[in-house]
């Protein structure tokens, strides 16, 4: 019997301080997330300096909690995996420096994980990945289509040219006077809505898998302005439904087109916006018709967490990838293949 591999993952790229222990890359032993949402809600979004201050407060407690609930001592671990980037630089370097100090003190190797690779590998915690694989990553900071031909190989085939999908959700929610974070609020209003405002779809060039959401956001703002100038009331349900259907249709259509072109065996969705019920339903229906297996992790693994970082870190560990104590937070880190 081969020895089990235990990796602790650490994630601080935005406003969640998280640590998790994963066994053999696919089994969560512990998963701890300290959210700053109550604090950040006051500002209507994530303030980087506030995020960094909270990370320092939480970091050792969160790692300790992950080890205690896993019932493991530091020396029983095989490696430390940490989000190296992309993300808020001040936030990233709390996780990176804690991970380096922890690894050094306990004689463990350190592995720097790309946040998006983490989101993709959240799926490995649910079912084995099958290649070629198409991943749609949608979150507050990312909107990307990534093709994987094998473990550790990433090809970016499409990305947002302006706002990330989740960013557009938050901005539109603010226009509608909804509390932060806006995504779940819009999703709820859209689901309850009995009407839809028709907003444009940003398809860009016909051969492009890129996205753009800033035009849609402006359309929503203009629509509200025009109505208000005429002294009419805005129906937030109808606006939310119209916005959501535009976002979902573009994401789904481009994902289906890419899946066909690359002949993928599996499609996965990941990131905070993958928790959106409208998007899930649309992708499930579309890939059902295509007869391509489609998976989306449970909500707790869609939003930022450290189990996904440990999962990706495990695959990197097996492939012999190692970082050094000179690792730094990389806010604009590219999604490079490790194979």
């Amino acid at each position: 019997m081969t020895k089990d591999i235990y990796i602790v993952g650490i994630e601080t790229s935005c406003d969640e301080t998280a640590a998790s222990v994963v066994r053999n890359g696919n089994e969560i032993i512990s998963n701890v997330v300290a959210s700053q949402i109550i604090s950040q809600k006051r500002f209507g979004g994530v303030v980087p300096e506030i995020a960094s201050r909270h990370h320092v407060e939480q970091i050792t407690l969160v790692i300790e909690e992950a080890l205690i609930s896993a019932g493991l001592k530091p020396k029983e671990l095989d490696a430390v995996a940490v989000t190296e980037g992309p993300g808020l630089v001040g936030a990233l370097l709390i996780g990176v420096n804690a991970a380096k100090a922890f690894a050094f003190a306990n004689g463990l190797p350190i592995i720097g994980v790309h946040h998006i690779a983490g989101h993709i590998y959240a799926n490995e915690l649910m079912q084995p990945m099958a290649f070629p694989l198409l991943a749609l990553i949608v979150s507050g900071g990312h909107t990307e289509l990534v093709l994987m031909e094998e473990h550790g190989s990433f090809k970016l085939i499409g990305e947002t040219r302006d706002d990330a999908a989740g960013e557009a959700y938050d901005k539109v929610a603010r226009v509608l006077g909804l509390p932060y974070p806006g995504g779940p609020q819009i999703d709820r209003l859209a689901a309850e809505s009995d009407g839809v405002v028709d907003f444009p779809r940003a398809w860009l060039e016909s051969d492009s898998y890129d996205f753009s959401f800033s035009g849609l956001k402006s359309s929503v703002i203009n629509y509200k302005h025009n109505l208000e100038q005429r002294g009419e009331k805005v129906n937030p349900h109808h606006v939310a439904a119209g916005f959501q259907v535009s976002v979902v249709e573009v994401l789904t259509t481009k994902a289906v087109k890419a899946a066909r072109e690359y002949g993928v065996k599996q499609v996965i969705a990941a990131g905070g916006v993958a928790a959106n019920s409208g998007l899930r339903a649309s992708l499930e229906e579309a890939f059902g018709k295509e007869e391509i297996p489609f998976y989306v992790p449970p909500i707790a693994l869609c939003t930022d967490n450290a189990a996904m970082i440990a999962a990706a870190g495990s695959a990197m560990y097996v492939d012999g990838v190692r970082g050094t104590l000179a690792m730094n937070g990389k806010p604009g880190m590219p999604l490079d293949s490790w194979k």
Binding site: I59, T60, I94, N97, A101, F102, N106
Partner: peptide, 11 residues
């Protein structure tokens, strides 16, 4: 502070 408190905690 992050390095120091992590070292102090784990050691």
């Amino acid at each position: 502070v992050t390095i120091a408190k992590t070292l102090a905690w784990t050691l």
